[in-house]
Computed example of a mutant assay.
Amino acid sequence: MANNTTNEVRATAKYVRVAPRKARAVVGLIRNLPVAKALEVLQFNTRAVSEDISKVLRSAVANAVNNNGMRADDLYVKLAYVDEGPTLKRIRPRAKGSASRINKRMSHITIVVAPRKEA
């Protein structure tokens, strides 16, 4: 039933209000892990972005199971990366009438899952 030739399934969360640098630190922890282990790592991680990444991972697994007929037990995190989204530029008043820029950064989080090849 899987019509994808490479058997990869992806999910993306766009415009997540977290700096890409912070998200990349967490995404690096789950790369190449089985899905169950990756969800466990995210559950016990103390960073706030872990919740958003966990949502994206669950979405990718749901896409694989519902749209491509794959088994959730066989999946692993093949690719996980964070791209930079648009930046909201804000101003903070400083001394002597000057101002400093505050950059509120956004991320696009993408996770690709694939079935593990048993060899």
Rank of each mutant, 00 (worst) to 15 (best):
N66L: 06
A36M: 02
S100H: 10
A36Y: 05
V113L: 04
S100Q: 13
V113P: 06
Y81V: 01
I30W: 13
G28H: 12
A64L: 04
V49Y: 09
V27D: 02
R47W: 01
V26W: 12
N67W: 00
L39N: 08
I109N: 09
L33W: 02
V49F: 07
G85A: 10
V16T: 11
P115A: 11
R92W: 00
L75V: 07
A13V: 01
K22R: 11
D73V: 14
R90Q: 12
I53Y: 10
V35S: 09
G97I: 07
G28I: 12
R17Q: 13
R71Q: 14
V41M: 11
L79S: 03
Q43L: 14
A64P: 03
R21L: 09
R116D: 03
K96S: 07
R47C: 01
Y81K: 06
G85K: 10
P20D: 06
R58D: 05
E8C: 03
D74L: 06
S59W: 02
N68P: 00
L79Y: 15
A80G: 15
L29T: 13
A72S: 15
R10C: 00
K104T: 14
E84H: 10
A23M: 10
K78G: 02
P93C: 01
R21Q: 14
M106E: 12
K55N: 15
S54C: 03
A64K: 05
P115L: 12
K104I: 14
Y76E: 08
R92T: 05
P34N: 11
N68A: 14
A19I: 01
V27C: 12
A36F: 01
D73K: 13
R71V: 08
E8L: 01
